[in-house]
Structures are given as C-alpha cells and as structure tokens.
Nucleic acid binder design. Structure first.
Lengths: 266, 266
DNA sequence: AGCCATAATTGATAAATGTCAATTTTATAC
DNA sequence: GTATAAAATTGACATTTATCAATTATGGCT
C-alpha cells in the first residue's frame, strides 16, 4: 500500500493540509460505488455522467443546513467537513467529520430531510450525486445496488463502533480512539497514517467525543508527555500506536484488518 | 392510532410481556419493506415467498454469533433480543435492543460477517429474509429497493441520535431518553407508550447506556421519587412524559412527530 | 506589521459517576 | 417448598471529569 507523506510546505502554512491533496475519483468512496472489480467501462461512464462537480466551499460555508430537503449524496473530493445537529439548549452537537473520499447525506434518505448540517472546516470540494439518479442507476446495475447497500451498512457499523466508544470509555480512551480512527482513514486514502493534520478545532473534537474542551486539551498534553504522540497545534505525529491501541481499548481487528477489508471489494 | 394495553395477566407472570403480543406481518418493519402504499398484490406475494419463518428462540439462545457469516436479515415477530459485541477485556458491550417489528443484521452487509451477536431476552420468534433474495427482488421492484435504502438510512439516523445521547448527556438524561425511546417504539407498533415491560436487565441497560448498574438503579429510584415514572421491577409506567423529555434534553421533534414520520411512507 | 478576536492551555475547585461492599429481593432448580 | 444463585438496591468512598477563571498563543484582517 502506497504511503504519501503530505508535502513539507504544508507544515507551516495555514489551510493547505487536506485541501491541497486532491483525491482522484478512483481513490475515493465513489470509486467504491463504481465497484472496482466488477463494473465495466460503459457502466462506469453512466455513473460518471450523473455526478455533478460543485464549486469549492470556503471555510465555514455550509454544504447543507439542518432540515433542508434531501436531493443528493455528497462525496468529499478534497478538504473536510463536519456535520452537526442543533440541541435543545441552542448548542450544536458535532456528529461526524468527513475526510476526502467519504460520504455525506446517507442519514437523510429516510425522512427526505437532512437531520444535520454540514459545514466546511477548510476549503473543500465535493461531488454531488443526485439520489434519484443513483437509485435509478442502481436499478439497472446490480453491482451498484450491492455496493450502495454495502456502504450504508458500513456506515451503520462505523456508527456502532463509535457508540461503543462514547458509551463506555474514559476521556483518554476516547481521544486515543479518535486519533487512531483519523489515522486509519488517512491510511485508507493512501496518505500517511503516522503524520497528519487535524482540520477540526479542539472544541469540535471535544464536542464530538462528549468531553469538555479543557479535558481534551489536557489529554493532548498528557499523550505528549507519555510519548504517545507529538502534537503541535493541528499537526499530529503518532509515536506509539501500540500503546494508543491499548489505551483506546481496541483489539487489532479494528485497525489494519478492517482497513484492508474495506479496500478490497469481494 | 390504536392503543392496546398489555393484558393484565401479564403483570405478575414471568415472560409473557412482549412474547405474548405477536405482531402481525402487516404491522412490522417488514410491512414497511413491503411498501404499504405502492406495492401491488403480486409483488407482495413475491416478497412473502422469500421470507422464512424460524422456530422460536428460547431465552438466552443466540440468533447469530459474533463473526458468523452473513446470509440474512431478521425481523422480530415477537419477543425481543439484544445485540452485543465482545470488548478487549472480555466483557460484552450491548449495542442494541430489538423489539417486535424491528430489524437485525443490517450492520453485517458490509463485511459479510456479523460484527455482533444477537441473543434472545425472552422467548422470541423472528422472520428470516435471505439477503441475496432480497437484493434480487429489489432489483426487480424499485419501490422495494427504495424502501430498503430508507430503512438503512433510518438505522444510520437512529444510531446518530443515540451517539448524541451517549456523547453528551448525564446519567439521568441517558436513562430518561432510553425509556422515552422504548416507549416510542412500542407506540409505533401499536402498543401502549405509557405502560410497558422492559425485557432487558438493569445490567443490560447500564451497559448499553455506558453507566454502572448502580447508577441506573439509583436513577430508577430517583425517577420514582420525582414522580416521573412508576417502576416495579421491569414493569414501567410513564407518569410525566413532558418532564422526562426535558431531562433527556429532547425537543418534541424526537417524539410524536418522528413517530408519525416513520409510519407514513411518502 | 500589528491589532483583535478566537482558540488553546493550565490551575483550582466542585459535581457526577464509578467502585467496593453489604443487603435485600427475585428467579431458578431440585 | 426450599435451597441456591442471580439480580437489584443502597450506602460509603474514591476517582474522573466538568466548571470556572485566568493566561497565553494563534490566525485573520486591515
């Protein structure tokens, strides 16, 4: 598996992390939608023809708002977004982060409305896949239907993993698992799993993990003291993955293995 | 909406709660799969023909084990089950409860293996829907494909709601939201949302909510002191739903409204 | 380049929940 | 029906994490 380290000029610049590293369609989840092994050329063209490229979002711009009506699924091409829901007390609750190659909007099919909002964390471009067209095409192409069901299933599976995390674990276990998860997702897209940039704020991380910002900050400090990571602001280097796994309370099955699994479409 | 209160002879007997109240196929999620509005008679027959009825499970029997290969989706006809995953430290982590009319196994499509085990909480019968057949049939029947995608999307949505709960809330908020959730699900199946039996132990509830058993027990006590519920063992009566909503940090949209939404297939 | 708003860190304290231990209640088996 | 095991409850105490407050660092803007 190829490993690209992000170019060094990204280190001290502001936004360029994920944004600069554009992901070719062939490497993203959409490619998984295209069914790498079994789809043929003309089918792939058909799929390609329904996809719309949208103009890039600037930081803090919304891809969609809470309650907006559902038309399309989106795939992140470059950059990153967060999804969040409003809570009763007027706060927002971050429900997910979306890196290049990942999907947004699957949770909106059921009710026809987006239950959460999606906001760009940096300059971000996405592909738009109109859902009616995708459904129609899935009707023609059994492999595409299958792949769509697989991706939705994976989403359910991933959410459940996160539930485990939020339900049971200590603050350090949560943060450790979070960092490992991000690391793994970078790896799956062909980037380095050892060194990467977090596009989200400590606040977003804390919110997502159900912790106070201060606690997250302290954990970052402790992880550095313990030699688990090096962290300078958003720039993270994983120094001791094995210990982090133990702290996260993960068995190995949740790392390399599942990473491979989700690559090779059987 | 009709409201059936469970027969009084269930009160002081052991198992008969959910188990006794068999749900007709027309009232369960499978009926949603059948697409109430738009599917015609012969299509419905086709769907009916691929469904297998299995012989009932006794309490503590498994429907499937962790890692077992995925063939079918299951629909609960009567009784109830819990799903759970093993954790590193040899414990189990409860990931969900499944009441009559609800689905199991959607999280297994992705990898072809069940990431969790499913165990009957009481005498329980399920319908088995072989996934290959379902996929094939969905290929023929666009409305069925659409419905399948909707149901999976709903699962994603529901999981995210739970994540919100586990991530942010206090112990009392979690338990309150849990009880309201169960109440709502009963209501959706046509049972009373005010009075019902919990088939799962306090231990399972605590595990599911990421709390210690003792904390759950104390919360039950407190809720009774505060007049929110009456609880005698597993028999629960909701006395003050409005206060419980506030404690759970829910806006109304998460109750009646969404209940209706998921009934009417548009 | 410098200013201002925002984000991140750190410390002190309070509140919530987990842990340990004992007791009571309920369920199961003989 | 009784014995035994399992589940639930309750209390005392320890630990973790949230909250409040203050300080420092960073990033965006003119």
């Amino acid at each position: 598996m190829q490993q690209k380290t992000l170019p060094s000029n990204m280190r001290n610049k502001k936004v360029v992390d994920l944004h600069a590293a554009k992901v070719a369609c062939k490497e993203c989840s959409l490619h998984q939608l295209c069914l790498p092994r079994s789809i043929n050329g003309s089918d792939l063209e058909k799929l390609d023809s329904i996809i719309e490229r949208k103009k890039p979002l600037k930081r803090n711009e919304h891809l969609f708002q809470v309650g907006s009506s559902f038309h399309s699924i989106y795939v992140v091409r470059s950059g990153s977004l967060k999804t969040y829901s409003p809570t009763v007390d007027g706060q927002e609750q971050v429900t997910g982060f979306h890196l290049p190659g990942e999907l947004l909007g699957l949770d909106a099919i059921g009710k026809g409305r987006h239950p959460c909002a999606a906001k760009a964390l940096e300059t971000t471009s996405v592909c738009e896949v109109p859902f009616e067209h995708l459904e129609g095409l899935s009707q023609e192409l059994p492999t595409l239907q299958h792949q769509l069901l697989r991706l939705m299933s994976k989403e359910i599976f991933d959410d459940q993993e996160l539930m485990l995390l939020l339900g049971k674990k200590t603050a350090e276990a949560r943060l450790s698992a979070f960092l490992l998860s991000i690391s793994l997702r970078f790896k799956q897209r062909g980037f380095s799993s050892v060194e990467f940039y977090l596009s989200m704020s400590r606040n977003d991380i804390a919110n997502y993990l159900g912790l106070a910002v201060e606690t997250v900050s302290r954990m970052f400090t402790r992880f550095q003291e313990d030699g688990l990571i090096e962290a300078e602001r958003k720039h993270i280097i994983i120094k001791n993955r094995e210990n982090m796994r133990q702290i996260a309370g993960m068995n190995e099955c949740c790392d390399e293995t599942s990473a491979k699994d989700s690559q090779q479409i059987s």
